[in-house]
């Protein structure tokens, strides 16, 4: 327990430092600040990977039955998505946008992990179910990043079309970069989401011997896949680009967000999350 608290504390500190340097980059345009921010993000990510593994091994079950564990997994998957984007095309302003979220989630995970008692073992939390949750988390995080980049594209494209360039928009990269990065994130998110849904379907067949499409969470998840599949089809077959294409990305994300969070608030579902 002490090791777990120590690790999540260190993770939150690493993300806080990364966040601080990303803000400093936003203010000064100093690339050294961006490099430092990236390194602290990577360090926090490694620590978080160790934390999750340690929790998983020591508890004997995936750490997704507690609030702290869920927040930890969410910030971990967001950090992974941000790092993946940095490797593909470094866009420093994305660090400034997303590192506060990652830090905030990891800080909440730290609070939840420190001040709440660990939940009792849940027999329903099988390895297959754990990976189903983990992959959908990864998918959702990549969709979140894709959504963020699509919004940046929308803003940049809107300014260029209206011929009114604001001074802060000089921090945003070129439309071509934003377009490529959106596709990268949505593609990765699509693959993780599909893997998560596949594993979930296997679990559903084992428990209920059918795929309960009457559950809004399952229906919503498949619709998200359908929207993004449609997005790729329009892009690769009909060469659709620009604002319309980004609008579809955003629509897909809003549905994913509703499926992920809204369903449990407004509708009834058999899912715990």
């Amino acid at each position: 327990m002490n090791l777990f608290i120590g690790l999540i504390t260190l993770t939150a500190i690493s993300y806080a430092v990364s966040c601080k340097y990303s803000f400093r980059y936003y203010k000064t345009f100093d690339e050294v600040c961006d490099h430092i921010s990236g390194r602290w993000l990577a360090f926090g990510f490694v620590l978080q990977a160790i934390t999750l593994s340690e929790k998983w091994i020591l508890d004997g079950q995936a750490p997704f039955t507690s609030l702290g564990g869920i927040l930890l997994a969410l910030s971990f998957s967001l950090a992974l998505a941000l790092l993946a984007g940095r490797i593909k095309t470094p866009v420093p302003v994305l660090n400034s946008l997303f590192s506060p979220f990652i830090f905030f989630l990891s800080f909440l995970a730290f609070l939840a992990g420190t001040f709440s008692t660990p939940p009792p073992a849940n027999p329903l939390m099988t390895t297959g179910l754990a990976w189903h949750i983990f992959f959908t988390f990864l998918g959702f995080s990549h969709f979140t990043m894709g959504f963020g980049v699509a919004v940046a594209f929308w803003i940049q494209e809107g300014q260029l079309k209206q011929r009114q360039i604001k001074s802060w928009s000089y921090r945003l990269p070129a439309l071509e970069i934003l377009d490529n990065l959106t596709v990268f994130y949505i593609l990765l998110g699509f693959l993780f989401w599909m893997a998560g849904l596949g594993l979930g379907a296997v679990q559903a067949f084992q428990v209920w011997h059918r795929l309960p499409f009457d559950d809004p969470k399952i229906l919503g998840s498949f619709l998200v896949l359908l929207i993004y599949g449609f997005f790729f089809c329009l892009r690769w077959v009909f060469q659709m680009r620009g604002r319309k294409s980004m609008t579809l990305v955003m629509a897909g994300y809003f549905l994913a967000l509703f499926t992920f969070v809204g369903v449990r608030v407004f509708l009834t579902t058999q899912h715990v999350f």
Binding site: T28, S167, S169, Y170, A174, N180
Partner: peptide, 26 residues
């Protein structure tokens, strides 16, 4: 130059055009 916007935005028509091109293409 780095901490203020003083040198970031071009002020002649030709360099504005080039700068806009950089906002569109990688």
């Amino acid at each position: 130059r780095t901490q203020t916007e003083i040198a970031r935005m071009p002020t002649n028509v030709s360099s504005v055009a080039v700068d806009l091109a950089k906002k569109i293409f990688r």
